[in-house]
Design a protein around this nucleic acid. Structure first.
Lengths: 215, 215
DNA sequence: AGAGACATACCGACAGGTCTGTTTATCCGC
DNA sequence: GCGGATAAACAGACCTGTCGGTATGTCTCT
């Protein structure tokens, strides 16, 4: 086994929680798969909930880092980056092991709004919106806050429906829906990205070598 | 206890599943709360999963019936009804006991796409889209299918974010995002509903006497 | 020597599900 | 209208497996 036990735990838990859900994944399964003793887990984490929180935070950092990198590698202009958001989401949803957004799933399983797990999940969504807002501001949108929140609604809807149905059709619908919104926020697009063309092939572009979050 | 045991079971399960989730709700809890013997449950349902499926189907019928009734009570024109969709969603999300969409939560907890529970949840989403499409067709939209799917993305995103954050702000954002989409599909709105006004008060209108789904 | 990871046995609680036996309600021939 | 048959719902003990979490003791690295 490579790496420190704590890291192995979080990585294994991340994978299993994504694949099977939080309640459905028992501690013993995680321990066996990570090759870690039970007492080692409880030396690092107070409880299963603490482990869940740690994996969510890890996933948050990992996902957002990846997301921002992806978006910013596809366009240099803030305006273009806003449009590219849906391409990145489409690539994500098209992955073979795509089991939906871990944070949405977490807030679905722990859906009391004051549950610490729910709170962490919400923080991820807020952070994504903040990022979109910073893009909108850089792009000179008329109302960056409103634009970012509207795009967030589209993104979340696209993720949920992609998960429920499979495939990336909902993401393309979201991209199509975003177009008039972006145009209203900026005036007509000067040069919009491949979101313009709606054939499926354009969504999954040439393979790119990039680190990708686990699910 | 009133009603047949089977109905009591489904109703109680519906309530508890909505409130605490599927995995987190044990059958003993359901039995105790419904006042039903264990063997009675297993005479009616083969397993807990069968009970979950039954509650989902019940919820599907109940919710869609309510939704259509609400939408159609708010406007007589198909165009107006499409705009009213977000008002109905806002009212729903503003309920005190709102714990998100049961079907989204179900597909989050049982997220293998071939899981029977996931399949039933997906069917609900498809049915809602079909309804929106029928409205779009009746309203003479340019591309009813596309319009319905775009609106569905907005609706799902609004529901998820309302659940994650609490409050109906995301629904208002979704309604705002829908406006240019609807205008593009029909030409400028002739008379749009209260979605036009964005102050919070307008979303929660005067209390109305109507059957409402449990959560 | 001491810290940390190891393995394993163990704990009470509860999961979903089965079995037994009793009570209650419904229906039918009389 | 009534008595008995039949089916359904009842209560509750019981099963195996697993849950999250603890305790004990050994081994392996600095």
């Amino acid at each position: 086994m490579k790496g420190k036990p704590r890291d192995r735990l979080v990585e294994t838990a991340l994978r299993l929680f994504c694949r099977h859900g939080f309640h459905a994944t028992g501690i013993d399964t995680i321990l066996a798969e990570a090759g870690v003793a039970k007492m080692t887990l409880y030396n690092h984490f107070a409880s299963k909930e603490a482990l869940i929180l740690a994996t969510l935070r890890r996933r948050d950092a990992e996902f957002r880092g990846w997301f921002v990198r992806e978006v910013e590698s596809r366009s240099r202009s803030p305006r273009g980056r806003l449009a590219a958001v849906f391409d990145v989401i489409a690539d994500w949803c098209a992955r073979p092991g795509f089991y939906g957004c871990m944070f949405i799933n977490a807030s679905a399983e722990f859906h009391r709004r004051d549950d610490p797990i729910h709170v962490v999940a919400a923080e991820n969504k807020r952070a994504v919106t903040r990022y979109l807002r910073s893009l909108a501001e850089a792009a000179g949108a008329r109302d960056p806050k409103s634009l970012a929140e509207q795009l967030t609604v589209l993104v979340e809807g696209a993720i949920v429906l992609s998960h429920v149905y499979g495939g990336t059709a909902p993401v393309r619908r979201a991209a199509a829906a975003a177009r008039p919104i972006l145009e209203a926020a900026f005036g007509p697009a000067r040069r919009s990205l491949r979101t313009r063309i709606k054939t499926p092939q354009t969504v999954r572009r040439a393979p790119r070598k990039r680190a990708r979050p686990a699910a």
